[in-house]
C-alpha cells in the first residue's frame, strides 16, 4: 500500500458494502454503501437519529461494546474486511482512532494519556523512556497543546479545560500514526473558540490522516470538509464533494436539510 503524503488520492481508506446494523430489532443502518477517500476530510451530516454515530462506530467496531448489536455486510479498512474472523480489535483500533463527542481523556496523567497507546501496543521494553517522551512531546506539539501543558504533564488529564481535553484526545491517537481518525461531533461540547481551535487542528492533520467527522454544524461541514455524506433514516442519501452537496444537491431531501429546513 502506498501512502502519498500530499493531497487526496484515488485510494479509499474505508469502503462499506451492504452494511446493515441492528440494535436488537431496530435497524439503524440499511444497506450502507460508501467509499471514503484517503487523505481528505469527509463530513457526515444528517438529522438527529439518522445513524451517523452508528456508522462511524462501525469503522472501528466500537459498536460491539453494546451487547445487542448485529452487523452484516462488509467494512473494508485499507482493503481488509474488519468484520472478518481473523481481525484483531487492538490492531484495528490502532489503525482507526476515534474522538468522541464528549472529551474523554482517561483518568490518568496527561503524559500517560498520550503514551497510552504506545504502552498498550508496543512490545514491553521495545521503546526507551526517551523515545516515549519524544513521541509524547511531538504529539502534543502537533495538536498545539505542548506549550500549555509541558509543565503539568503529570497532572490528571481530567482536570484540563474541555477544549484542551479534546485536543489531548486527538493527541493521544497520533503517536502510533493511525490511518484514519473518526470524530463524532468533536466540537459539540466546546465554545466558539474551542471549535475554531479544533477546526484549525483538523486542517493541520488533513492529508496525513484520513478524517471522518460527524457534525450537526452545517457551516462547519462546509468550511472544514472536502467531501460530504448526507444520511437519512439509516441510509446514505448523497455523497460528493462538499460544495456540490451544499450547492447542487441531487436530492430534494439533502437540499432541504442543508438549507436548514429541517434537522
Amino acid at each position: 500500500m502506498t501512502t502519498e503524503p500530499n493531497g487526496p488520492t484515488d485510494q479509499y481508506s474505508i469502503e462499506t458494502k451492504d452494511l446493515c446494523l441492528w440494535y436488537g430489532d431496530f435497524q439503524a443502518l440499511i444497506q450502507v454503501r460508501v467509499r471514503i477517500r484517503q487523505g481528505i476530510i469527509t463530513s457526515l451530516i444528517g438529522p438527529s437519529g439518522c445513524g451517523k454515530t452508528t456508522l462511524l462506530r462501525c469503522f472501528n467496531r466500537v459498536n460491539e461494546r453494546y451487547g445487542n448489536v448485529t452487523t452484516t455486510g462488509d467494512v473494508r479498512v485499507l482493503g481488509k474486511n474488519i468484520y472478518d474472523e481473523d481481525v484483531s480489535l487492538p490492531e484495528l483500533r490502532k489503525a482507526v482512532g476515534m474522538v468522541f463527542q464528549r472529551p474523554n481523556p482517561l483518568p490518568i496523567s496527561i503524559y500517560e494519556n498520550v503514551a497510552f497507546q504506545l504502552k498498550v501496543h508496543a512490545e514491553p521494553g521495545s521503546l526507551s523512556k526517551r523515545e516515549r517522551d519524544q513521541a509524547v512531546e511531538s504529539a502534543l506539539k502537533e495538536v498545539l497543546l505542548w506549550d500549555a501543558v509541558k509543565d503539568s504533564l503529570h497532572k490528571k488529564a481530567t482536570g484540563l479545560q474541555l477544549e484542551e481535553q479534546q485536543k489531548l484526545c486527538i493527541a493521544r491517537l497520533l503517536p502510533l500514526k493511525p490511518q484514519v481518525i473518526l470524530m463524532d461531533e468533536p466540537c459539540s461540547a466546546l465554545d466558539a473558540r474551542g471549535t475554531e481551535a479544533i477546526e484549525d487542528l483538523m486542517s493541520v492533520l488533513r492529508e496525513r490522516y484520513t478524517i471522518v467527522i460527524v457534525t450537526h454544524n452545517m457551516a462547519q461541514a462546509r468550511r472544514a470538509s472536502d467531501e460530504c455524506i448526507y444520511m437519512l433514516l439509516g441510509r446514505i442519501v448523497e455523497h460528493g464533494p462538499t460544495l456540490d452537496v451544499f450547492l447542487r444537491p441531487n436530492h430534494k431531501d439533502t437540499e432541504n436539510y442543508v438549507e436548514g429546513r429541517y434537522g
Partner: peptide
C-alpha cells in the same frame, strides 16, 4: 463507562482496561 470506551477505542484489551484505567 466512557473511560472504558475510550480505552477500548485506543485498542486496549479488556484486561488492559482493568489495570491501566
Amino acid at each position: 463507562d466512557h473511560f472504558r470506551e475510550a480505552a477500548e477505542s485506543l485498542g486496549a484489551t479488556r484486561w488492559q482496561v482493568v489495570y491501566k484505567v
